[in-house]
Design a protein around this nucleic acid. Structure first.
Lengths: 154, 154
DNA sequence: TACTGATAGTCAGCATACTGAGCAATATCC
DNA sequence: GGATATTGCTCAGTATGCTGACTATCAGTA
């Protein structure tokens, strides 16, 4: 019987569990109420104004059915807007609001602090190595989840 | 603006996403219907017969409110039993059923295969190093989530 | 023994994530 | 041009995970 600590799946779940807790704690301490997923979506909308939901999903590897609810909540908080696209009437164009921009700017220190805290047991070199290995494993496994990462197609 | 790929939090979420997808695919292919969480709970019940839910939660770092539903589903599938404890009438003693034991035995190859697949982009040495670094980061961050890992107290 | 605090479990509510189905609109092919 | 396939989005249903609150019980103490 293998120990949990020899199972990459268990370690993945545990590390992610801690990462989310740290993120939420840091963000809340800085006076905001934004989940990791909402943050990633908002930052990506800001960098790619007017993108549609499927493209957004591909850029951050979410399932498209998950995106719907995430955008709902960003819109409800006044951080993003969802408009019908003029080119394709099926699609919705996403835009960040001024309030969203302000929130992103003011929340950044907390987000960066969270990334440091979740690696606090590792040396700088080990942290880099962990990220390198995760990137490598993720690249190899990209197509195995329903929501693979997708580049923007020009 | 940092790239997602430089954020350990994003990498953690993505790796975990792939890990779960691989686990479910392997298990389903072998003819079973068990989630990673249910598997971990069942395996831990088998190794610690008669343990209560809080102890189980501590051993695999779940929140105690999550455990309730997980056990519900294991019981409903006939893989585990929940009995009132004789020593403490608040507590429930958990036992694995014969059917649960059979399932665990027959599902093990799929589980092990899944662990290999989620590391398939890495060399054996890199896989070991990834697990070492994850264990180290997790140990340092253990107390930061609501559901820290807890040893059995004698 | 009565009071106080801690503990085991559950529940309601919310936010990811996924499967599978469906609708509307666009693309493609004959 | 019209049938067919594909695509963008949404929805219903299920399963983690969490917060916070509540009940029942237990443990320690005045």
């Amino acid at each position: 019987m293998k120990d949990n600590n020899d199972m990459p799946g268990h370690l993945a779940r545990r590390f992610q569990q801690i990462a989310v807790a740290v993120f939420l704690a840091e963000v809340e301490e800085s006076g905001f109420d934004l989940t990791p997923v909402q943050y990633a979506a908002l930052a990506t909308i800001k960098s790619n104004p007017g993108l549609d939901q499927v493209t957004l999903a591909g850029l951050i590897a979410y399932d498209r059915t998950t995106i719907t609810g995430v955008i709902d909540r960003l819109v409800q908080k006044g951080l993003a807007e969802r408009r019908a696209s003029s080119r394709d009437r099926r699609a919705r164009e996403l835009e960040i609001t001024d309030e969203g921009r302000r929130t992103l700017r003011r929340i950044t220190p907390a987000v960066e602090s969270a990334q440091r805290i979740m690696l606090r047991g590792l040396t700088a070199k080990e942290g880099e190595e962990l990220m390198r290995l995760l990137r490598k494993a993720i690249t190899a496994g990209n197509e195995l989840s329903r929501a693979p990462l997708r580049d923007v197609q020009a």
